[in-house]
Simulated assay, not measured.
Amino acid sequence: MNKRAFAAALALAGLLPLAATAQSFRQPIKVIVPYAAGGGTDVLARLLGQGLSKELGQPVIIENKAGASGQIGTQFVQAAAPNGATLLFTVDHSLITVPLTTPSAKYDAEADFTALGQAARSVWTLSIPATAPYKDFAGFAAAAKAEAPLRSFGVPFTGGAPTLIGEALGRHWSVAMEAIPFSGSGPVIQNVMAGQVPAGITGMPEAMAVHRSGKARVVAVSGAQRSALLPDVPTFKELGIDGLEFHTFLGFFGPKNLPKEMAQEFNAALRKVLAEPAVLDKLGSMSLQPAPTTLAEARAEVAAMERFWKKALQK
């Protein structure tokens, strides 16, 4: 008996693991998106789901469970069995910031979930109407200091990064800034374009399109360095406002106690999908930065973000 036949016989007898063909995922995979269909998180989940289905050999079904700033879908996955049948695709806000600010969100990002890998990152943007008399950050700052009606800003949800940015601006200018919540970044940008709010704080994907079209202006971004997508726009740190050197991420998570080999298999599949040219092109069109990570890197990112938000919220 040759070596190949001998190995096959052992495998059939259950004595040799089928490393090349064995799969941890043996049933359809439901990926929960804790936001409404059609948003950026949902669009990206469906794109990645197609590639993951091919890599993992199982159907990947995207299901939207929106509500309560992402709590409903997130808690659904928290309560799921750790067998790979139910996973989560979300942004850091619902997973990390919400449980730190909302007593009813009884979950912890590190303790209750298995980080499976990030997919993309983005930064937060400060946009002003194209029709505003002020044309840049300095102009908006001067106007807000001088005129009380201009001391407000639209945000896509209550609390979290957008509100923190607006409050940091107010402290820096020694004025009280008011956050005006909308039902998502889309409505924020629409109201900025219409001049209904003096400024808006949203993610990069929503702001880029109107900035490029000239319907609004992005005048500052979060993050430790300028965005490659907007190299001419300064960071808040460059403008003298510290503490806003953070970004937002989109990533996959499973329930806690998900088997290690399953997590490793999923992570390898995700990194392979994120290397596909079509996926990279789509991320670029959505103004998102590809962010493939190992399992260890994904866990470290969650821990770092949780430390940041605990400290920021205490302030």
Rank of each mutant, 00 (worst) to 15 (best):
N2C: 09
A8C: 02
P17N: 09
T21I: 01
A22C: 07
R26P: 05
P28Y: 10
V31Q: 03
V33M: 11
L47T: 12
G51T: 10
E63Q: 15
G67I: 02
G70H: 08
G73I: 08
T74G: 04
N83V: 08
A85M: 01
L87N: 11
F89A: 09
F89Q: 08
T90G: 07
V91H: 15
S94N: 08
P99D: 04
T102Y: 07
Y107F: 09
D112Q: 13
T114I: 05
L116V: 02
A119I: 09
R121M: 14
S122P: 03
V123I: 14
W124N: 11
A138W: 10
F140W: 10
A141C: 11
A141D: 08
A142L: 14
F153P: 06
G160D: 06
A161D: 07
P162D: 13
I165L: 06
H172Q: 06
E178P: 14
P181C: 07
P187M: 12
G195Q: 09
G195T: 06
Q196V: 00
V197K: 06
I201V: 04
T202M: 04
P205K: 03
S213M: 05
V219A: 04
V221N: 08
L229H: 04
V233F: 04
D242Q: 11
G251S: 11
E261N: 15
N267S: 03
R271M: 10
K272Y: 04
A278I: 02
L288W: 02
P292F: 12
L295C: 00
L295R: 11
A300I: 08
E301S: 09
A304H: 05
E306Y: 03
E306R: 15
K311E: 15
A312P: 04
